[in-house]
């Protein structure tokens, strides 16, 4: 068979005009095929284009919808923010009004107290000889009660002032401030034969002088006050520095505080003792409020019978 095919091929090779014709036809066919294929490609591209356009349109729709939602959201956020601002302003105003009421209340209540205290004392002075012991005792009770209430109102006024006043922080030299507080408490320290150590170191901190003075005064006078009877108070003041923050420690050898009361004692009007350690329950609330107004924190560590270690933190200058 191979021989036959070869013979046919040879014969065809010789017949050249026929070959030429066939070649042209083949080329034509190829051209036609190419053109058909091109056409198909164009069609496919067009279909793809349409699809793409559709997809773009769809995308645009989605985008518009998304934008609309975004606008709505930001409108709502703005509305919410306005509402929050409004409510905050209202709350701040109420708060300020309340604090102003506390101030004028405490202020006005002191006037009749001055009269009660002053005149009960004058009564005993001038008529003391004609009064019997019980009557003198009553006058004395009026006097003491009025004095206590006055102390209460003074502390409340201090608390309210610290809450309300504008607080600008400046560089405060702790060394000078500690000196002046201990000087103010000198009488108390001598009367109780207390030992006060103050190893420091005493850097310069960012604080408000009068508020910081009151904070330290309250802490040290507490340390001198809450000791077991006949125990000379021992107070130690020192500092620690960590990452630009100064922690001031006020440690004592006092009666200490049980763990479950250690948070409570910083609240207004909290007292843990009866008449053995008289007080208004405002001192530590002033300490906390004062330190907070200066951007710091307060805390304490203690166990009953083992003294207390109070601390507060302020930023270093």
């Amino acid at each position: 068979m191979k021989g036959v095919t070869k013979a046919v091929h040879d014969a065809l090779d010789l017949a050249s005009p026929t070959v030429e014709h066939e070649t042209i036809q083949a080329v034509n066919e190829a051209l036609l095929l190419g053109s058909l294929r091109q056409h198909a490609l164009v069609e496919a591209a067009e279909t793809a284009n349409i699809q793409l356009r559709e997809e773009i349109d769809e995308h645009k729709l989605t985008e518009t919808a998304l934008h609309r939602v975004q606008v709505q959201l930001s409108d709502q956020a703005a509305e919410l923010e306005a509402l929050v601002t409004e409510r905050t302003a209202a709350l701040t105003a109420t708060n300020r009004q309340l604090e102003a009421v506390v101030y004028s209340l405490a202020h006005d209540l002191r006037a009749p107290l001055r009269a009660m205290q002053g005149f009960s004392e004058l009564l005993v002075e001038e008529a003391g000889a004609t009064l019997n012991e019980a009557s003198r005792g009553y006058a004395d009770r009026i006097n003491k009660a009025a004095q206590f209430m006055d102390a209460l109102l003074c502390d409340l006024l201090d608390f309210s002032r610290i809450s309300q006043q504008r607080v600008e922080l400046t560089a405060v030299d702790l060394a000078t401030l500690v000196d002046s507080v201990l000087c103010d408490l000198q009488k108390d320290i001598l009367r109780k034969s207390a030992r006060v150590e103050r190893p420091g170191p005493w850097p310069v901190v960012l604080a408000h002088t009068s508020i910081l003075t009151q904070v330290l005064f309250n802490l040290v006078s507490n340390a001198l006050k809450f000791v077991a009877p006949d125990v000379p108070p021992q107070v130690r003041l020192h500092t620690e520095e960590r990452a630009g923050v100064i922690r001031v420690w006020v440690e004592d050898n006092g009666v200490g505080i049980e763990p479950n009361y250690q948070e409570q004692i910083f609240r207004l009007f909290t007292r843990l003792h009866g008449e053995k350690y008289p007080g208004t329950g405002i001192g530590l609330a002033i300490v906390r409020k004062g330190v907070e107004r200066m951007g710091g924190q307060v805390g304490m560590e203690s166990a009953p019978g083992e003294g207390s270690r109070f601390w507060f933190e302020l930023r270093k200058e």
Binding site: R110, L113, R114, Q117, G118, E121, L122, A146, Q147, D150, A151, C154
Partner: peptide, 9 residues
């Protein structure tokens, strides 16, 4: 500031 008791006054 007006003191709270006669002695202080």
């Amino acid at each position: 500031v007006k003191p709270g008791n006669l002695d202080a006054l």
